[in-house]
Computed example of a mutant assay.
Amino acid sequence: MASSAMMGGAEKVIGLATPGLGFTVSDLHGKHFPNLGSVSFAGISKSRTKSHFPRCSLSESRPASQPRFIQHKKEAFWFYRFLSIVYDQVINPGHWTEDMRDEALEPAELTSRNMIVVDVGGGTGFTTLGIVKKVDAKNVTILDQSPHQLAKAKQKEPLKDCKIIEGDAEDLPFRTDYADRYISAGSIEYWPDPQRGIREAYRVVKFGGKACIIGPVYPTFWLSQFFADMWMLFPKEEEYIEWFQKAGFEDVKLKRIGPKWYRGVRRHGLIMGCSVTGVKPASGDSPLQLGPKAEDVSKPANPFMFLLRFLLGSIAATYFVLVPIYMWLKDQIVPKGQPI
């Protein structure tokens, strides 16, 4: 459900040459990172690795017992029932701008008008508008669980030829080896089981095709961490990489994204933080085997617990509405060249 977003116009790609669990990044959880461009890990010298790319081991995921009150399909459905009313007018201008969107889509390599593309969690179609700049709308399918968000997408003239369907990111209604490109922006944070969703991405992409997932990054500032863990899933960068690799993707790369005024500071974890891509190396289903779904939406919810989760999650979300305003003001006050 194409969520609100932001994070760093730093224009850098973290490339992974091998599927090992340990990998190299630039100041992975630090407060600031330099512009490094595209990096191929196979060719990094030992000295450069030490000075710019400290070795990071794969960290543990945050425990499932942490609240994340909107990281459930039912709560997310109603969250967007109301947010869809103001999503395009209020959320996108501060969190997920057109230049950020276009930069985040670059690694997907939308190189042909005839490509078959699925936009999973496409919401109001904001990310899809970037896709149809490169691909004919008749070849694009927008999928989302929220009919309220999709109603907004249907109103947009450039998307009138797109297929628009309701569906579940963890159980896609597409045949295996269907699409040339899988795109999902601002949706993974609401998936109860992100590994399952990425496994589905692998399944529906053709041999040699690419999946591109754009999503938030876990903050480093303690107050932002508190509200992030209340609201929804903010994965760490290495978690994205691990999920892609376990699903079977190769040539996995991560590119940090965000507004130009953000100056590369990571500590507040502003919502849209990275664009991750992987290539499908063989036809067929993912080699990863998983058990039952983490969440069964057919089961009735406890009304009191549902309301409590929904209200607390919405309160936590408000914090991240205020953060871009705070960061924008700091950008106006702090001298240029200094991190904020």
Rank of each mutant, 00 (worst) to 15 (best):
M1Y: 13
A2Q: 14
S3T: 14
S4P: 12
E11A: 13
K12Q: 08
I14Y: 15
G20K: 11
G22Y: 10
G22H: 09
T24F: 06
V25K: 09
S26Q: 11
L28N: 09
G30N: 00
P34E: 11
L36H: 13
G37K: 06
A42Y: 08
G43F: 12
K46G: 09
K46D: 12
K46R: 13
L58M: 11
R62D: 14
P63M: 03
A64H: 11
A64S: 10
Q66I: 08
P67A: 04
F69S: 10
Q71N: 11
R81D: 13
F82N: 11
L83P: 06
D88N: 08
D88P: 05
D88Q: 02
V90N: 03
V90L: 06
I91Q: 15
H95D: 08
W96K: 08
E98I: 11
D102G: 03
L105V: 01
R113W: 00
R113S: 06
N114H: 00
I116N: 04
G121F: 01
G125I: 02
G125Y: 00
F126H: 14
T128W: 03
T128D: 03
L129M: 02
G130M: 06
I131L: 01
V132Q: 04
K133P: 00
K133G: 01
K138W: 02
V140C: 00
I142C: 06
Q145V: 15
S146W: 04
Q149N: 14
A151R: 07
P158Y: 07
L159C: 10
L159I: 01
D161Y: 08
I165H: 03
E170H: 01
D171I: 09
P173L: 10
P173I: 09
T176D: 08
Y178N: 12
Y182K: 02
A185N: 09
A185G: 15
I188K: 10
Y190W: 15
D193V: 05
P194A: 04
R199P: 05
R203Q: 05
R203E: 07
G208A: 07
C212K: 07
I213Q: 06
I214T: 03
T220Y: 09
F221A: 15
Q225G: 04
M232I: 12
F234Y: 15
E238L: 15
E239P: 08
I241M: 13
A247D: 01
F249N: 03
E250I: 07
K253Y: 05
K255S: 14
R256W: 13
G258F: 11
G258Q: 05
K260S: 15
W261M: 05
R267F: 12
G269A: 03
L270E: 14
M272F: 09
M272K: 06
M272L: 12
K280S: 04
P281F: 04
P281K: 04
A282D: 09
S283D: 10
G291V: 02
V297C: 09
N302A: 07
F304M: 11
L308S: 14
F310P: 08
L311G: 06
G313K: 01
I315L: 14
I315C: 13
A317Y: 15
A317C: 14
F320E: 05
F320G: 06
Y326P: 00
W328N: 03
K330I: 11
D331C: 06
V334I: 15
V334Y: 11
K336E: 10
Q338A: 10
